[in-house]
């Protein structure tokens, strides 16, 4: 059997980064599943990639540049229509302080 690739602590940390609330049962299941997937992926470690450039874009392209002109925006009622909570023309969320992340 191979070594453990991801710990429960790792799973908790990643869930926090991803803003997913998981209970202990889910964390345990997630750990097992991720572990077997990561184990499968270990085959990539065999390859010598020192001289290989990454492919971030599968088709060679360059970013088109937009002319700096103003285009119509959405009407405010359209922009806010799907908001779970709206106040004074703005999207309302539970109170936060600046800089909290």
């Amino acid at each position: 059997m191979s070594a453990v690739r991801i710990s429960l602590e790792d799973v908790r940390h990643v869930a926090k980064l991803a803003r997913l609330s998981l209970d202990e049962q889910e964390i345990e299941t997630m750990r097992k599943q991720l572990d077997s997937i990561l184990d499968y992926m270990a085959s990539l470690e065999q390859l010598d990639l020192a001289a290989v450039e990454p492919t971030f874009y599968s088709v060679a392209m360059q970013a088109p540049l937009r002319t700096d002109v103003i285009q119509p925006s959405l009407r405010r009622d359209e922009a806010l229509r799907a908001a779970p909570m709206e106040k004074a023309g703005a999207f309302a969320v539970p109170k936060v302080m600046d800089g909290e992340g």
């Binding site: 700096d68 002109v69 103003i70 925006s73 959405l74 405010r76 922009a79 806010l80 004074a88 023309g89």
Partner: peptide, 22 residues
Amino acid sequence: TRSKMFCGCSTEFGAPPNTHVC
């Protein structure tokens, strides 16, 4: 600039909230 970095909405300061959005 007149318009935003990745869309055509105006960058004007001081407009009513959420009127320069797309």
